[in-house]
Design a protein around this nucleic acid. Structure first.
Lengths: 337, 337
DNA sequence: TTGTATGCGTTATCAT
DNA sequence: ATGATAACGCATACAA
């Protein structure tokens, strides 16, 4: 491994001068800087991040906390998209990614400890149970933090526009003449509550009466449950004309059930989804759905976190709401031509 | 930040003694060790990985190189599954994950440089163009390396059993009475070549003549292309009775095309897939497919890499082939009852 | 059993 | 413009 000392020896300058030259310090003559940089490159020099980290207490690591309840982790479609674009943007900004878990080898450690151990300059929190103490401790640890789809005091926040998205979706369905809209929704989380609230509020604003039986708590990405509830809905004395699903996978469960009952989409029953832009767009007809902008969310999260890190004590947490996009597929029938 | 020195001051012992006690050195009395550990815990001590790294030149980082051609990165289903289980197992073994990219901030750097900069103890290579110089350089850098689905001399290797898997799949289809089997396969990679070779060899062994027109090069996860080729196949003067797709998404494209032509699966045309265990299992009928054991592959990769790191110069690269599982869905009709 | 001294590679301060 | 020196936090060889 080639170090600054070795370069110093080779080129006759001192280690201090070499360090400065390599870091582009202003008090080094252009000529020496040039010479030193050439020799360093020639020798294949790479700085040692550990030494630099120790000296400057800056790691250029973004910690990533990414533990969802369903334990899908990195295979979770929406979050893997966010993470992917977060990673790209972070790299552009000069940061590497370091996952924060709750164990180091055999031992259990807290997220805060893990982040401190690795000297993370900042941390992004996504896809977790935000009420967990281990999580709130991290958010309050003083380490610059940005949360996805959640707000902590004094932390940055990147949120999907669940309120606006759901409103747009419901208004569209209403504009297609539907008055009886059911919503099979995901388990109780802050995000779900927002969507449900927006659903109810928008329906109310449109003068729609939504009976209790139309609002069904299910579980995200569970096709069996959504199939079951679809059946329930369709067997109601007064069934809905349109069913909303919480995600692509739930939709597929519902779709199977609908076909099984000999009905077809959208002739006999209309459907729409949320947070779907993957599989559901390959099926025919294409699902009408509200696509969240995961890519933009990841980018913004990286930029916000970089800002939090670099502004330090003067950082004022940003609260960014990222709009989604209404994708008009072919699953909502026009009842009012 | 609380350091060893601070603990030393507080408890009256020297820094060396504290360090030893905390690391469970044998030459410290049980009593002092106990005392020191208590005080350390009380003070909320966490070692500084940068300092430790610098001193021991061990980072307990596994570098992860994960750049696929299609740029899906972490959203690639198969590889995200591998990465997820790799991450879990690595954490159990005491390692954190650090992504290796080809840039640091604005500057371009090589993978090797990146891995060295972060002092990665070892590196896993997955989902890349293995012929790229940047990649082979990494594999030959001397850093302990394990590759997924590829073999480098002196690197460990975890491979999906593409030969055995494809053979099992073809033999099963043959056992159902099919003699005219077509294969729409992915773009040219080492993995694809293995599958195609095994497909051809198995067909030959079974005495099946596969015309050129039955073997179609497509692109992975491209539903439009697979739809197009499905149409081509079905319009052949002598069409196949069963079509093999390279993945779930390609299958969905084919499925749509089949339905569009008024045919049904498996009554009119049988189909099967490869590397599918996600969406295709939620559709009805369930796709008959050969599921790769991504979870096991990730675990094994972590274990193999840990071994490579810990055995150092005495490490003899392991070549592990991980069998898949034939999932019997309902898309292959029995032609020979 | 415990403590002293040293150095890992780097950067920052202060002289020169 | 350049260099000598110290220090970051830790682990270790060796002395006590």
């Amino acid at each position: 491994m080639v170090t600054i000392k070795m370069i110093a020896k080779k080129c006759g300058f001192s280690a201090a001068t070499v360090s400065k030259a390599l870091n582009g310090a202003p008090d080094i003559s252009a000529e020496t800087a040039e010479t030193i940089r050439n020799i360093a490159a020639e020798m294949g020099y790479m700085p040692n991040s550990a030494a630099r980290m120790l000296k400057t207490s800056r790691s250029y690591f973004f910690g990533v906390l990414f533990e969802d309840a369903s334990n899908k982790g990195l295979t979770h479609v929406f979050f893997s998209q966010i993470l992917n674009s977060f990673k790209h943007r972070a790299e552009e900004l000069g940061y590497d990614i370091c996952f924060i878990s709750d164990r180091m080898g055999g031992r259990e450690i807290s997220y805060v400890e893990h982040a401190r151990y690795r000297n993370c300059d900042g941390v992004i929190i996504a896809s977790v149970d935000y009420t967990e103490h281990a999580v709130t401790d991290l958010a309050n640890s003083g380490i610059p933090t940005v949360a996805i789809d959640y707000e902590f005091t004094s932390c940055g926040s990147i949120q999907s526009d669940n309120l606006g998205g759901m409103e747009a979706l419901v208004r569209y369905i209403h504009s297609m003449g539907h008055r009886k809209i059911a919503y099979i929704h995901g388990e109780d989380t802050a995000v779900t509550r927002n969507r449900v609230a927006s659903f109810c509020r928008t329906c109310a604003a449109l003068g729609l009466e939504i009976p209790e039986s139309y609002l069904i708590p299910s579980i995200y990405t569970n096709p069996d449950l959504s199939a079951l509830y679809t059946k329930q809905l369709l067997e109601l004395p007064d069934p809905p004309t349109c069913i909303l699903y919480p995600d692509d996978i739930s939709y597929i469960g519902g779709m199977n059930q609908i076909e099984k009952m000999g009905l077809s989409i959208p002739e006999d029953i209309s459907v729409a989804g949320y947070d779907g832009a993957d599989v559901s767009q390959m099926l025919r007809p294409r699902l009408t759905t509200l696509k969240q902008d995961a890519v933009r969310m990841g980018e913004l999260a990286a930029e916000e976190l970089a800002r939090a890190v670099e502004e330090g004590r003067t950082y004022i947490p940003g609260r960014i709401v990222v709009p989604g996009e209404l994708i008009l597929g072919g699953t909502v029938k026009n009842l009012a031509p």
